[in-house]
Simulated scan of single mutants.
Amino acid sequence: MTLPDIILLALAAFFAGGVNAIAGGGSFLTFPALVFTGVPTIAANATSAVAVFPGYLSGALGFLRELRALPVRQTALLMAVAALGGFIGSLLLLVSSPGVFALVIPWLLGFATLLFAFGRHVATWAQRHVDADGWQARAANLIVCIYGGYFNGGLGIVLLAMLAGLGMRDLNQMNGLKNGMSFVVSAASVATFALAGIVVWPQAVLMMVAATLGGYAGARVSRRLPPQVIRAAVVAIGAAMTLVFFLRI
């Protein structure tokens, strides 16, 4: 890594950790940064997952008070499904060819950006059409976590929409649970990627440290920072990255 690469990756990871703690979408920063510094796409996706997952834990710890108020059984069930989905999604990534994944990337980025931009509408629809205790909610939970294991981009906003569909209303509790589930999804996929040997570890370790610091800082400031500012910035970054990767096809 050159010095400019180190600076770019550290800054991308720090802000990604903060953004993930507040609203999700941090992979819009880490994944492109890795690709732009020369890491192949599949390895960049795996390394990006490794880079941001400690930030999810520190972000969840920032909402520990709110998480303790949740029913233990509900939290344990959601975390178990998150682990299963993350494992399945990571296996799907491992069997994807680099060519296919390169074609899928811009569509996934665009999909995640649209979900992020219209997350409130998605959450409203989920509240009206998804039975919190029905099979649809459990299936949606598993599908979202499989998506997170395959491609982490936009996972946070999809999880927030799903939690709203489950009937949750306390935004701080939802953010804490979202961060906790994101950590479990990422931990399952990270373990799979590490065993498969596709993680670029020097970049991953650097970004893990920066993302952890950013995640804790993001959780601390989330109660003061206007969420619309963060959301607008993430949508703009996601749209720009989608366009860039479409042009790379």
Rank of each mutant, 00 (worst) to 15 (best):
G62R: 03
G62A: 06
L92I: 10
F151H: 06
Q74E: 13
I146G: 07
M1W: 02
S27V: 04
H121G: 13
L11E: 04
L142M: 08
A16P: 12
G149D: 10
L160A: 06
H129C: 05
G110W: 07
P227E: 13
S90P: 08
T113F: 04
Y56A: 01
L29T: 06
I237F: 10
A187T: 12
G215A: 02
A240P: 10
M241V: 14
A239I: 09
G18F: 02
V35A: 08
R73A: 10
Q127S: 12
G156R: 08
N45G: 00
M168K: 13
A132P: 09
A187Q: 08
P40Q: 01
S58K: 05
G26H: 05
L61G: 10
W107V: 12
L70S: 08
A232I: 07
V190C: 15
A102Y: 07
S186I: 13
L114W: 07
L3N: 07
L93E: 08
G119T: 01
L160S: 10
G156Q: 02
L160C: 00
V221P: 00
H129L: 13
S96W: 08
F193R: 04
V190Y: 04
R128A: 11
M208G: 03
D131E: 13
V95F: 12
L29W: 01
G238T: 01
A123G: 11
A188R: 06
F15K: 02
V221K: 04
V235N: 11
A13G: 04
R68N: 14
I42S: 04
G218E: 08
A123N: 07
R120L: 11
T2H: 12
L108F: 11
A194R: 07
A132E: 14
A236Q: 01
A191S: 09
L108G: 11
V205Q: 09
A191R: 02
F151T: 14
M208D: 00
F28W: 02
A187W: 05
L93Y: 05
L195D: 01
A102N: 05
A10W: 06
R128H: 12
F63T: 01
G167Y: 08
M241H: 09
Q127D: 10
V235G: 07
N179P: 11
I88N: 02
R224D: 09
P32W: 11
V205I: 12
M174P: 02
P106N: 13
M162T: 14
M174D: 05
A16D: 04
F28G: 04
H129Q: 13
A194H: 05
R68H: 14
T212E: 03
A233C: 15
E66L: 02
A49M: 13
P40M: 15
R120D: 15
V72C: 07
T192E: 00
A187G: 03
L9M: 07
M168P: 06
L108R: 00
L163A: 04
T113V: 00
I105F: 01
T37G: 00
F28K: 12
A82R: 03
